[in-house]
Each structure stands twice: as C-alpha cells, then as structure tokens.
Design a protein around this nucleic acid. Structure first.
Lengths: 259, 259
DNA sequence: CGTCTGGTTGATACGACTCAAATTTGGTGG
DNA sequence: CCACCAAATTTGAGTCGTATCAACCAGACG
C-alpha cells in the first residue's frame, strides 16, 4: 500500500499524544509533530513554485516546515501575495472540493511538505469529526485573515500596513511555537513584503526604516525583533480578534511558547 | 417545538424538488426557493446592521432576498467593505464554528433572511453529506473571492478595480438568476463602492464616468447595464476562474438565466 | 417646501510610484 | 579564504494617481 506512509504520521501522533493532537494537526503543528512528519515529507527548494494556478493536484499538501506564499498575478505581470502559509497550514485545501487552483503557491524558504491523498482526507474527515472540525476551523480562520488583508490593503496607510503584516506574522508564528522571545526568523524579502502589501519595494524599505526609527521593530539578516508587540499593534491598528486565537485548540499552543 | 418553523423550508424543498436542490441551497437559491423560504424569513430594513463584530448569534442567517455587505472598521472610522452577500449566501457561517464575528454585516437593501438554529445546521450537515459538501463549497468560494479582492485592492488601478467589482457582481447575480439580459438591479451607492474599492466616493464617481464614456457600463437609478461583459472583463483584467462556476451544482443555475 | 442623502465638478495637496544609481549582503567557485 | 557575481537593500529626484476640501446640484422624502 503506497499510501500507508501518508497515513502513518497520523496514527503515530494519535497513539503518542492522544486524539487532541490529531484534532490540532490541521491547525498548528508543534515542533514534535513537525519532526515526525518530516520523515514522510517532500522537500521543495526555496523560491520554487509548489502549485500553480489552474492545476488540480492529486494530493493535498500540508506544510510541515518552511514558509510559502500564495499569490496571484495579472496578465501584465503585476503580482499580489494574498497569504503566507506557515507550518501546519494546508497549501491547497480548496482543490479538495473545488476543481482547480485559483492561485499559485510558491516556496519562500526551503520547504518540507507532506502529501496527503484525497482518499486519506476523505477517510480522515468522515471517520474523525474532530479532524473535520479542525479543517473547518482552518478554512474559516483563513477566510477571516483574508478579510483582514482586504481591510489592510483598502484602508491602512503604508506604514500601518507593513506594521500590521509584521505583527500578524509574529503572532501566527508565536501560536505555533516558532518565536524565541520577541524574535523570530523572517525570511521574506522586501520585495515579498511589497507584493503582499500592495506597495513597491522601495516604499516598503522606507516604511521599515520608519518603523525602526520609531523603535517598533528591528529587522536584519532575516531576523525580526519586536521589542513591544503591544506598541506595534497599536501603531498598526491591529485587532487580534480575526485570528480567533481563543479557539478550544489553543490550549495546546499555550505550552509551546510560554514567553 | 419552536425550531420547527426553521426546519420546514428544507423539508419543503426536499419533497418538492429533490435532494439536488437541497444540496444547492447553500450555494444559490433560485427564485422558486426564495419565494418558499421568504415565508419563514425575517425582514430587515435597508441600511440596518444585521450582525455586529464581536457578536455570537444563536442562529446562522441565510440570505433569502436583498443585498448585504460585510464590513470592517478601524478605530478612527475608516471603513472597508470586504464582501457583498447576495441571496443564497450565508451571512455568518463563521460563528457556526468560531466563537465570535470578526466583522459586521449590514443590510444594503431591505432584506429577508432565514434564521437557522445551530442544531438544525448540525443535523443537516451530519445527516446530509451533500449539504455539508455545499457548505464547504460556499466557504471555499468565498475564500477565493476574498483572495481576488486582495488582488483587486493591491494591484489594480482605480479604473480596473471598479470595473472588476461591477463585473463580479453582475456575474454572481447572473448565476443566481437575478439578471435581466445585460441588466441588473444595482442598489449600491457610490459610497458603498468606494468603501469596497478602497477609494473615495469622489474618485469612484470619476471612474464610473470613465467607464460610461468608454461604453463599458451604464448605471443610473440603481440599474446597471453591461452591454458587453467580455469587454468589461478585458478592461478590468477579469479572470472568472476564481468564482469556480464550473462546479457540479452549476447546471442548476444554467436554466435560470439562459441569456 | 425645506431637508437630506447621493451624485457631480473643480482646485489643490500629498502619499506612493518611477527611474536610476550606489551600496551591501549572501552565495559560489577558484 | 578571497574574488566575484547576483540579489537585495538603500538613497535621491521627479512624477502621478488618488485624496482632500469645498461647492453645487438633483432627486427622495416627510
């Protein structure tokens, strides 16, 4: 059975850590989980496309490690990053129901992803209500994040927009235990940020300088530090409600990053 | 049993038109369905809020007739419309899984909505896989639309943005049989459009004039005409793939508006 | 008939873009 | 370990798209 290797990690998790973790799988992966899953996962080099608009992949891809971005392009080349995918996110839950991808997914860093066959998904969702629930949760939260991005692009100034983006990423990383105190890895280039914020990289550069000048962030060598997340949130009009962190699965994350 | 009046419309639909329509319910309502449902639905006056950010309503609201908009606001009053809800859409599928609304929903026109208790939803989704599937479909398509709005706000010019918005609304209306040839009702004010496009109403006004001058639209007295949807789509860089109209449920719509 | 909301027009201001070049960083091979 | 190259970041000057502010007009409504 070729697909066994795909099922295994779930089984493994289940016996080791109980069904609570199975439910949380679709939400966020703790580093323990990441290590296990990485054994059956595929490696994608940085800056390579994982899936392209129009495709209808056979497998659903679960991010195990690394950063990816979802993006859409216009015929004349204009490019918009519409979301960032972090470990624990599904890259393409859509194609599980819809016919084709309406956007592409590109690797920002070197990636490891687990391929899950559709039949496995069927099996998982139908036999495990908690997993199905978790998938719903992921989809609805992604939807909420996308709405916030709409607000971000439509109403916030360039300065607020970049601040908001940084705060969101930091908080998302923190909930999956990928921060170290007030620091985290930050592999995005200013060009990535520009494409996500609907700005030019030149202007992003200037806004980052202002944020630094205001003591809200420091960012160098792919490393982000946010000395006072509260201040950054205030400056970028950040209301965390849209991340829906008060979800029942949250207590799992609480112990990941106490700081 | 208080909730009986809520169940009834589904039962009614089921016996009259078969389970195909039940499955399509969550997708799009044909006018037949709308008429039936309107008997058990509640009326909301135009320009009144249906749900506010932070609330956790007991019922899920299904749009039966009229237009609504989802919007988010910033503390200083800036307002962004993040989506339009049309008949057949759920207003707040999110609160069925998540804890609280992260945005508000306001009535654009007089509205009629059907209140569905959570228990009814549970029952429907667990006993009827096709309904569950339909809910997935709705959620994922909304997600796709939200991504397209992100692209719209981030990359398109004001002119393209307004054109895109009009084209999208027209096409969505057409799939639910609410167009008449190349015309449709259009109750949005230029202020609504501005809040949706991240522009000022003054600038929206000028873009509408340009679109009219270019023969792409005519819009007066809450009535929109698009003489050549193909031309409008071209001018606004509109790629309809994100609406996922090739879904299996689509054939239901096909007969609604042959034109 | 006045009031109000929505639509239209014009003049001016500013935030973000464009273009261009210099500088720094990171990776690669000799 | 250094030389080299490509990619990313930084800086400056000039331009443009959209916002702002301020009237004015038209239709809806009580």
């Amino acid at each position: 059975m070729q697909s066994l290797s795909v099922v295994k990690p779930f089984k493994l998790l289940e016996s080791k850590a109980g069904s609570k973790v199975v439910a949380a799988l679709a939400l966020r992966l703790e580093s323990f989980t990441r290590q296990r899953l990485s054994r059956v996962s595929r490696i994608i080099p940085a800056r390579r496309d994982l899936i392209r608009e129009g495709e209808n992949p056979k497998y659903v891809h679960l991010m195990v490690d690394g950063w990816a971005c979802r993006y859409k392009t216009l015929p004349d080349g204009r490019r918009q990053v519409v979301a960032f995918a972090l470990p624990g996110d599904f890259c393409d839950l859509n194609v599980y129901v819809l016919k084709a991808m309406d956007h592409s997914v590109g690797a920002v860093t070197r990636l490891s992803v687990a391929d899950i066959a559709r039949e496995e998904m069927d099996e998982l969702t139908s036999s495990r209500p908690r997993v199905a629930q978790a998938l719903w949760w992921e989809s609805l939260v992604n939807n909420a994040i996308q709405r916030e991005w709409t607000l971000n692009l439509g109403q916030r100034t360039a300065y607020e927009r970049i601040g908001h983006l940084l705060a969101e990423i930091y908080l998302r990383l923190r909930t999956i235990g990928m921060t170290q105190g007030d620091c985290c890895d930050f592999p995005l280039t200013q060009i990535d940020l520009a494409d996500a914020a609907g700005l030019t990289s030149v202007h992003v550069n200037r806004m980052l300088q202002e944020l630094r000048r205001d003591g809200l962030i420091s960012l160098e060598r792919k490393r982000l530090r946010i000395p006072d997340i509260g201040k950054l949130m205030e400056a970028s009009l950040f209301n965390p409600n849209y991340l829906h962190l008060e979800h029942e699965g949250r207590e799992l994350d609480a112990r990941l990053e106490p700081a």
